[in-house]
Amino acid sequence: MLLIAAFVLTNQFNGFVNIGIGSIIVAALALAFAVQCITHLAFAPLPIPLAVLYIIFQGPLNWPNVQWWALVLAAVFASIGLAILLPRKHTHVNRHTYSHSSGNEFHKHHHHSRTHIEDGGNDNNPSVSVHFGSVSRYLHAACLETVHLDCNFGELQVFFDQAQLKPDGATAILNCSFGSIVLFIPKTWNLVSNLSCTLSGVETDNPLATPTENAPQLTLNGSVSFGSIEVRYI
């Protein structure tokens, strides 16, 4: 409402643009929606309000002329692309909570303004999710089966040296977009990488690695887009 008031006043005082009241209301709503998207770290819908703003202001501000349908189509495709690259799997929690359910399951959330760090699963199947934060996690599993690691716009370090793998091996499922994941792995382990990579860096080979026969096997699955995954042998 304050934005609409400001737009109306600038319009009346021969301000920087000269547009109708209907366009002013739509522009203010689009701007408010864009701001809300950014503050809630929901980037997928962001192109839509930006396209609306462009359509409204391209004439008054003499921006390059683009057909409205082309802008809307481009915004929809950009939204779909961002939704794939930056999946939002978790509801944000505005406090720090521990909730224990049956068995050894746990969930732990850290939420500080932009950053969102979430731990889940159980000791042998842990999961860590980081959005806009930096965190290091030490795994202490007695029989590690799977570990899920999500990192968007953040840094995540995971130390495997205190964990015991399941005799037939363990799987790490990594999902990294615009972030960095570093895995610290004992140099005697066998490492199998099935990571798919889009415009990213994956570094799993290291001359320090000296895998032994019958050593535990860790398989890396998942994908990395516009980010990096590095394995450091210790």
């Binding site: 500080h112 950053t115 806009f132 934060g133 930096s134 965190v135 290091s136 030490y138 953040g154 840094e155 370090q157 130390f159 040296d161 610290f184 450091r232 210790i234």
Partner: peptide, 22 residues
């Protein structure tokens, strides 16, 4: 790190932790 948490390293160890800005 001005934009995120700072990283702490320890003498003689590979272990690292992050210090939150708070």
């Amino acid at each position: 790190n001005l934009t995120s948490s700072s990283q702490v390293r320890f003498a003689g160890s590979h272990k690292q932790v992050y210090v939150s800005r708070h």
